[in-house]
């Protein structure tokens, strides 16, 4: 199967077969990491631009490393260090980057739909590295990859996503991906942090972490942002932590092999306790490693690579 897309904007529009192809392609990419030379010439001569309008260490470094391991030339642009501060529009910036010869533009942006906008105007491939509260497809893919690697399959698993679903692009990409691959998805959050009609996406809603956690095979814990408290979305971090935070006691009440995930960065002691984060059930550090493999796979496939032929 070929991957025939110009862009990766979200998991909503990917088919099950396309998602599986990316996961399959990430496997040999990950195998490279244990070699002495962790590099392949697959993207030699290609230019990959990281265009980040939001602070990010994890995702930006992960993409940069992925591109470098594929031997692409990489350039990083951060919003505050560019002509953006001089008032240049997003489209003008994107067209400039295209004109400089970018083959792939990886964009992180605080507003939902920003990568969709530029993808309509430039011929370079666009990878959404997180847009506003919409999607973060490579995070969704690396989460799927990690679950599949550990559990063998995704179909039939009960996966909980706990936290600020309303503002979470990670949650949306996870829901699309997990549903397409046959998981049963539980949204666990305060009513104020659940977006309207989310049950129409085929997920179950729970306000009771302590009960729901017992059913789960996987729990993906989202970062809670302190600013949300100001918008009256919950009364205090302390109350949030008491009801929706995953601590050791709640972890122990779940299945023995309940897998704990977190996209990072963590607020230890708020949504996740230090004991849980560092427990043997946590795969948080492996998620980071797998992120590089997934991003290599995406870059490779978008650049026309054939997954049978990874050097």
């Amino acid at each position: 199967m070929e991957f025939k897309r110009k862009d990766l904007l979200g998991l909503e529009n990917l088919s099950k077969a396309e998602i599986e192809l990316i996961l399959k392609t990430a496997k040999p990419m990950k195998d490279l990491f244990t070699r002495t030379v962790k590099k392949t010439p697959a993207l030699r001569g290609k230019t990959v631009v990281n265009l980040f309008y939001e602070p990010s260490t994890r995702t930006r470094v992960s993409f940069e490393l992925a591109a470098k391991r594929l031997s692409a030339d990489t350039i990083n642009i951060t919003a505050n260090a560019s002509s953006v501060v001089k008032g240049e529009s997003l489209l003008d910036t994107a067209k400039t980057i295209e004109s400089l010869g970018a083959d792939v533009v990886i964009m992180r942006h605080p507003h939902s739909g920003a990568p969709h906008l530029i993808s309509r105007y430039i011929t370079s491939s666009v990878i959404n590295a997180g847009d506003g509260t919409h999607e973060h497809p490579t995070q969704g893919l690396l989460d799927l990859f990690t679950i599949k690697e550990k559990k063998g399959t995704i179909s039939g698993l009960k996966v909980g996503i706990a936290g600020d679903i309303l503002h979470s692009r990670v949650a949306r990409s996870n829901i699309w991906g997990l549903k397409k691959l046959g998981a049963e998805v539980y949204i666990i959050a305060p009513a104020t942090l659940i977006p309207a009609n989310i049950e129409d996406l085929g997920v179950k809603i729970s306000y009771k972490l302590d009960e729901t956690i017992k059913k789960l095979d996987v729990i993906n814990i989202l970062r809670i942002q302190k600013e949300r408290q100001k918008d009256q979305l919950f009364p205090s971090l302390g109350e949030y932590s008491a009801v929706f935070g995953v601590n050791n006691e709640k972890l122990k009440s779940g299945k023995k092999d309940l897998m704990v995930m977190h996209p990072g960065p963590m607020n230890r002691g708020v949504e996740i306790s230090a004991t849980v984060a560092d427990s043997t059930q946590s795969v948080i550090n492996e998620q980071v490693t797998n992120g590089v493999a997934i991003r290599m796979a995406v870059l490779f496939l978008l650049s026309g690579g054939d997954h049978e032929n990874i050097a």
Partner: peptide, 9 residues
Amino acid sequence: GIVSTKLGL
């Protein structure tokens, strides 16, 4: 509604 939820708006 469902559209605002899907689009993250």
